[in-house]
Design a binder for these strands. Structure first.
Length: 870
RNA sequence: GCCCCCGUGGCGGAAUUGGUAGACGCGCCUGACUCAAAAUCAGGUUUCCUCACGGAAGUGUUGGUUCGAGUCCGACCGGGGGCACCA
């Protein structure tokens, strides 16, 4: 439906939003209204929205995110806080390199042009941002500090190189962190990741695993959902490491030493019937050297890799090794040892003991290979279970387990761990699912890793005086692979330690490092000598309110929490957590359209016609309307913010973003909704400007008494203040909008009357204008000036409600008969129970319902309800 | 498979946290203005019965707790999200 857009251009506008919006944006900019400066005498408030990747143009998701943040920023400002509300650019990343390959534009040029475009777009939204603090992570003045911090972390043992099996994205030609592999596929490319053994840089996030987990409980202003996701990701499990002596059955006489396994069920040790090692386990590798069959098996395991679909369908496979393991608690008892495709080298010790009686996976494996299935846990109620048919996973009592018999599972765990430790064959441990953060990327457009490889000195840090290690500009993108690596001169340097020819590290950092501390940099964005000034940082941090998409629940938010701790470890800060409050906003969705030939159509290419049908504008052919989905280029269901702002104005776009849908839920973008929001802006302007004629001047003396109508209006106004303040604080913007509609309706109905009514009308209008200020700042500023104010609304305080006007003298009390509503009675507020009861019993509708019966009981809830029970 | 969240009119969603279900907006219907339309304004809009007054039912289904349940508890159905051979 595009009637709306057409009607805008064909209707004479009484409120010229375009002119008004540019006017006020200019005023705010000229007066540096939103420039933030440290002021220890005032309480600070740091509002931050996740900074955008400069992809080219802003999308509706940005509009929603930044509108929400701006409401909070402007509101807190009006409440007297010294607000910091900055904006910057997450400017490194692969799309710039892809653009370089496809469009032959240098990544730097492409990025900065995009930044210019998007900055202009954001400015047209009228956001209360301090642009003087703008930063871009691709700027050497930014990333030099990042390189320095990395060197500090390296020195402190928080950064290290390790050879390991890593996830390789074959499309982007780079390795990925575990967090960036979703269902076995690269998070950006969707290509199945391959496994490669490479030496890569890692950050020791696992060092803080326990703290990152336990501190989640204290993040009270974080969504429960995000905390839960992080807790699951960290994945703490208690268990034991148990050492099994390996013995050779092939007669090689080699002493294989003890095999260390991890288990969360040491209570089931007596049910062990096999051992299983990862195909990548060193013992397997050693045996494979002389066993082609095992080599083949290992290769097969590697092939199945991590792709989720394959994992699900893949059968448990084992390869019997020429080894046995001696049971640590049963002298003389041995179990066979297998290499198995389901054991992960990355988790625990890469080796397990199999207890088929009480583990789903082990049961499947044992059944396949004809291994014994022993029962060591029985249901507490004494009922029998068929352990051969299915494993028994539930809680119960331990049986067939020597000194553990009769104990509960929990008690048995404690007791067996104590015994293992006593015997020196095991120990209780805590295991985390979280792995260290792999940060090397084989890409050009990222922050260079400040390290040098020297044949004689090994890996040497770049001396601080040589920072920043800057990216060279003259690179080529004509071939796949890392342009830094094939640059003719860049990587050739002298070793800082011995001076001999050496080679620069050509990998760059994962761009999630860039975004792990930008919020700190915003506190002193221009400081050259350090990432931030301690005093400034201490004043502004932590971020009081962070707002962004839930898709960053693990990646960005967990990394940032880690980075803050790493900085603490090297004494850069004493803070533990970067974000005090977090809000995750929902996505912006739109209907999808498909032409007869199946191709996707943009909303601009279709029109809804009479009879509810939808047709393609070009040839009037019918269009299939699909369900509403997140706006995406691939489905073409996108609406350009620029166009909306041009046709309807920023205030309308903002208002619509805040209306109807709760901010944490997905929002359905509809053309009808936008025109509705636009009409309301027009209506507001009309209501206000017509009312302003004949009002007493600003600051006129308050009348001693008010007419009933005037008091009613004042009540509505002051209730609006109270309600909307609460709503904004609670992020219930849709409710605040609803209240503003109600208040606008009241205002529209308010007729001129005596002097007190005129005074009340001015009061109400001024309150109204201040209340819409955070949401539609341009219109509000315009009306504020029209009301005769010389100062800016943006500099004006939030109105405070008069408590006396918030309570009503009379209340409507519902009268129920057996819990069913029969009618209502108007009573004075706080009418005593007995009088309320009397009034209710006199209600004709109740008397009729009673039909002569005597009430058995009467429940009176003061000011609420009277329930008569018969 | 495991964990979490959500099911309220034609639609988006309210409901002071156990106390008048459907605020507010969209859409739709009727009327006014208009030659007509758009815009605007006034009124209506959960469903069923009734000319009306009024009444009955009603928050995914079902059972329970309670004077009283959209709200609390149990089971089920449906939708969404996270994790997933993690030992």
């Amino acid at each position: 439906m595009f009637f709306g857009i057409r009607s805008v251009s064909s209707t004479p506008q009484r409120y010229n939003f375009h002119e008004t919006e540019t006017k006020w944006q200019k005023v705010w900019e000229e007066r540096q209204t939103f420039k933030a400066a440290m002021d220890k005498a005032r309480p600070k408030y740091y509002v931050l929205e996740m900074f955008p990747y400069p992809s080219g143009r802003i999308h509706m998701g940005h509009v929603r995110n930044y509108t929400q943040g701006d409401v909070i920023a402007r509101y807190k400002r009006a409440r007297g806080f010294n607000v910091l509300h900055p904006m910057g650019w997450d400017a490194f990343g692969l799309p710039a390199e892809n653009a370089a390959m496809e469009k032959k534009v240098h990544p730097k040029k492409w990025t900065y042009e995009n930044i210019a475009t998007m900055k202009a777009q954001l400015k047209s939204m009228g956001l209360s941002l301090d642009w003087s603090r703008e930063l871009a992570t691709c700027d050497p003045t930014y990333y030099r500090h990042q390189q320095k911090m990395f060197l500090d972390f390296w020195k402190a043992g928080l950064a290290y190189r390790k050879e390991a099996w890593v996830n390789w994205d074959p499309v982007d030609n780079t390795v990925l962190a575990n967090e960036q592999v979703i269902e076995g596929k690269g998070w950006r490319t969707g290509a199945p990741v391959e496994r490669r053994k490479l030496t890569q840089w890692n950050l020791r996030i696992t060092h803080f695993a326990d703290e990152l987990l336990s501190r989640l409980d204290t993040l009270e202003r974080w969504p429960e959902k995000v905390r839960l996701m992080q807790a699951n990701w960290i994945g703490k499990s208690r268990g034991a490491r148990v050492f099994w002596q390996l013995a050779d059955t092939a007669g090689a006489k080699k002493d294989w030493g003890k095999l260390e396994i991890f288990t969360t069920r040491p209570d089931t040790l007596y049910g062990a019937s096999f051992m299983a090692l990862s195909a990548e386990h060193p013992v397997v590798a050693e045996l494979a050297a002389k066993d082609p069959g095992l080599q083949h098996f290992v290769a097969e395991c590697r092939k199945t890799g991590t792709a989720a679909a394959e994992v699900e369908t893949a059968e448990k496979q084992g390869y019997k090794l020429p080894l046995v393991a001696e049971h640590p608690l049963l002298p003389g008892k041995t179990v066979p040892v297998y290499a198995a495709n389901f054991v992960l080298m990355e988790y625990g010790t890469g080796a397990i003991f199999g207890c088929p009686g009480h583990d789903e996976r082990d049961h499947e494996f044992a059944t396949k290979y004809g291994l014994p299935i022993l029962q060591v846990v029985a249901p507490a109620d004494g009922s029998a279970v068929d352990i051969a048919a299915a494993p028994y996973i539930e809680d119960g009592v331990i049986v067939n387990s020597d000194f553990l018999d009769g104990l509960s599972v929990e008690d048995a765990k404690t007791k067996v761990i104590a015994r293992l430790e006593e015997m020196g064959v095991g120990k209780g441990t805590v295991q985390y699912r979280l792995r260290d953060w792999l940060v090397s990327r084989q890409r050009y457009w990222g922050c260079p890793i400040p390290a040098i490889h020297c044949e004689s000195c090994g890996v040497v840090p770049v001396p601080e005086k040589d920072l920043p290690v800057e990216l060279p500009d003259d690179v080529t993108f004509d071939r796949p692979g890392n342009p830094l690596d094939r640059h003719p001169t860049w990587k050739h340097v002298a070793c800082p330690s011995c001076g001999k020819p050496a080679r620069r590290e050509t990998d760059t950092f994962d761009t999630f490092i860039d975004s792990s501390w930008y919020f700190d940099r915003f506190t002193s964005p221009h400081l050259a000598t350090a990432p931030f000034d301690r005093e400034e940082n201490h004043y502004w941090m932590p971020v009081d309110q962070y707002i962004g998409g839930v898709e960053h629940a693990i990646l960005h938010l967990l990394y940032s929490r880690f980075w803050t701790r790493a900085m603490r470890e090297v004494q850069m800060t004493s803070r533990d957590e970067p974000f005090d409050g977090l809000f995750t906003q929902g996505m912006v969705c739109h209907e999808t359209y498909r032409a007869g030939d199946g191709t996707w159509l943009t909303p601009e290419e279709v029109e809804r016609v009479e009879g509810g049908r939808t047709i393609r504008l070009s040839d009037r052919s019918p269009v299939e309307v699909g369900r509403s989905e997140k706006m995406s280029k691939s489905k073409k269901n996108v609406v350009d913010p620029d166009q909306i702002i041009r046709d309807y104005g920023a205030d309308t776009a903002r208002w619509f973003m805040l209306s109807d849908s709760p901010p944490e839920r997905d929002l359905e973008w509809t053309e009808a909704g936008v025109t509705g929001a636009w009409r309301f802006q027009q209506r507001l302007h009309r209501i206000a400007t017509t009312a302003i004629d004949g009002l007493p001047p600003a600051g006129a003396a308050k009348p001693a008494t008010f007419s009933d109508a005037a008091t009613a209006l004042r009540r509505a106004a002051h209730k609006a203040i109270a309600g909307i303040s609460t709503d904004i604080e609670a992020f219930h913007f849709n409710k605040a909008v609803a209240r503003l509609y109600e208040f606008a309706n009241t205002l529209d109905q308010a007729k001129g009357g005596d002097e007190s009514a005129q005074w009340a009308l001015r009061e109400a209008l001024e309150i109204f204008v201040r209340l819409i200020g955070p949401m539609t700042p341009h219109l509000a500023e315009e009306l504020w000036a029209a009301l005769g104010h010389k100062s800016l609304l943006a500099d004006s305080p939030w109105p405070l409600p008069d408590d006396a006007l918030l309570v009503d003298d009379t209340v409507t009390v519902a009268v129920q008969l057996n819990g069913k509503l029969r009618g209502t009675v108007a009573l004075a507020k706080d009418t005593p129970k007995d009088q309320a009861e009397k009034a209710a019993l006199a209600l004709p509708e109740l008397v009729r319902g009673l039909d002569g019966k005597t009430p058995k009981r009467v429940i009176v809830v003061p000011n609420r309800i009277v329930n008569v029970v018969v």
